[in-house]
């Protein structure tokens, strides 16, 4: 139900200021994005068209706390088919970043482990310039499970068989066990410090 007295009409402009969210108001609600989305076959009620309409209406809290924001695969099918060039995949990314900042500010609780994973991934790039799988898994599982020990238990449950499979094929050599580092790591740090929304 729409509570008109709770609407935040400026929400659409907040999204449009975020890189990727610029085309929000081009949407004319045709639903092509949702009809082509592969997730609609798997996640009941998944509906990016509805998220866009709620954003346009200013249903800020409902949109930012919607768990469906975090299951988009960014496969770009919606973007390819949209007749209005709304670029839905990028738009949902823009909304996700607003939600993440709200959570960082203590105003929202996100019901998904994805922000934690994405952040752990970015920390690897910041530190090494390249993805370090072990470092990523260690940080992600430790944070998700609340302690290093519990994290390692959960990781082992998810990845023991997978890891053994890779090991047997010789894919767990030094390049998997130790981080590959770019020489100029200072610039990686600077990029994450200085780029991104709100850092102009």
């Amino acid at each position: 139900m729409i509570k008109t007295w709770e609407l935040e009409p400026n929400f659409k402009y907040e999204i449009m200021k975020e890189p990727g969210g610029e085309h929000l108001t081009s949407c004319f609600q045709c639903s092509t994005c949702t009809l082509g989305c592969p997730l609609t076959e798997i996640v009941p009620g998944y509906n990016p068209r509805k998220i866009i309409q709620m954003s346009l209406l200013g249903m800020r809290n409902e949109v930012l706390s919607n768990p469906d924001l975090w299951v988009c695969l960014i496969c770009q099918t919606c973007t390819a088919r949209c007749p209005q060039d709304v670029r839905i995949a990028d738009l949902l990314g823009a909304i996700r970043r607003i939600a993440e900042r709200e959570e960082e500010a203590g105003k929202l609780k996100i019901d998904s482990v994805r922000p934690r994973f994405d952040k752990a991934f970015m920390h690897q790039l910041e530190k090494y310039g390249r993805l370090y799988d072990f470092g990523l898994a260690k940080e992600y599982y430790t944070g998700r499970e609340g302690s290093f020990f519990k994290g390692m238990m959960a990781m082992s449950k998810d990845y023991k068989a997978f890891g053994m499979r890779l090991f047997k094929k010789g894919k767990m050599g030094p390049k998997a066990l130790f981080p590959e580092k770019v020489k100029d790591r200072e610039v990686m740090k600077k990029i994450f410090e200085q780029m991104g929304a709100g850092k102009k």
């Binding site: 890189p19 990727g20 960014i74 990028d90 990314g93 996700r96 970043r97 994973f117 994405d118 991934f121 970015m122 690897q124 790039l125 310039g129 390249r130 993805l131 770019v182 990686m188 990029i191 994450f192 780029m195 991104g196 929304a197």
Partner: peptide
């Protein structure tokens, strides 16, 4: 260096 994969969502980064 890494391209950002699908985890770095901010286009500017």
């Amino acid at each position: 260096n890494c391209c950002g994969a699908s985890e770095v969502e901010d286009p500017e980064i």
